[in-house]
Design a protein around this nucleic acid. Structure first.
Length: 227
DNA sequence: AAACCATGCAACCGCGAATCT
DNA sequence: CAGATTCGCGGTTGCATGGTT
């Protein structure tokens, strides 16, 4: 099918968001709620494509974001959910209030993968790494070669991410019943097809939002925002 | 002190799914 | 029903920062 570009790239900003852009986006969503991302930038007076606005809102500006460090419980929950769901980050995020799919994805790639490898567990299959590959598995991994160091050893059965239809029947369904934190692990996920454009509750000001980042709050400098 | 390397995170890109006309 | 449009997801990249040599 024909695909129209999501935006006119010649007239859109790219890269880090500025404080002003953030404010415009927040103000607009405060007033109108999350609606049509396609038309939002223009309506909000932003030189961004809708996609970019959506991402910025979901991953950073949303008032209900928890931010801060992941707890051990969250770690365990992510691992458990990943075993079941594979790289379905949005579904995993749906089980972790205040966390975004992007955040979890990043956290998985930077922390949990390594953690599992250190335990001798293949982060893709969640099975013990056989000796041959374990020898190749680095304890200190480089950026990309993690992926090169382990292989699927699922044989004919599927790995979680090779098939969306897979996680219904294979032994991945043998979900470890006890789960950390008492968070709902019922995976009969029925996401609303499309969230109705409901005005979402927003904090009164940005300070409130930033204060919710927790004591481990990332310093402002951590955000590549061009102020 | 400077150069280099490793790490972590925000943001972008491309694609498929869902919905609309 | 087919094509067009929009949304949402997952993979990947770019860059800032911190650590090491």
């Amino acid at each position: 099918m024909g695909r129209s570009p999501c935006c006119e790239k010649a007239h859109t900003n790219k890269g880090a968001w500025t404080k002003e852009e953030d404010q415009r986006l927040v103000a607009y969503i405060k007033a109108h709620g999350e609606g049509c991302w396609r038309s939002l930038p223009k309506a909000a007076g932003l030189l961004r494509c809708g996609k970019s606005c959506r991402l910025r809102w979901i991953n950073y500006l949303r008032p209900d974001l928890k931010r801060g460090n992941f707890t051990e419980e969250e770690d365990d929950l992510i691992i458990t959910l990943h075993k079941i769901l594979g790289n379905k980050w949005s579904q995993i995020a749906g089980r972790l209030p205040g966390r975004t799919d992007n955040e979890i994805k990043n956290y998985w790639n930077t922390h949990i993968k390594r953690k599992l490898l250190a335990r001798g567990i293949d982060p893709k299959t969640h099975r013990p790494i056989v000796v041959a590959t374990a020898a190749a598995a680095p304890s200190s991994s480089h950026r990309q070669d993690d992926d090169d160091d382990y292989d699927y050893d699922l044989g004919p059965s599927c790995s979680p991410e090779t098939s969306g239809a897979c996680h219904h029947s294979d032994d991945d369904d043998s979900v470890p019943a006890p789960h950390p934190g008492g968070i709902d692990l019922n995976l009969s996920i029925s996401p609303p097809p499309r969230a109705p454009p409901s005005p979402s509750p927003l904090p009164d000001d940005e300070d409130a939002r930033r204060n919710t980042k927790g004591q481990a709050a990332r310093p402002e400098a951590m955000h590549p925002v061009k102020y």
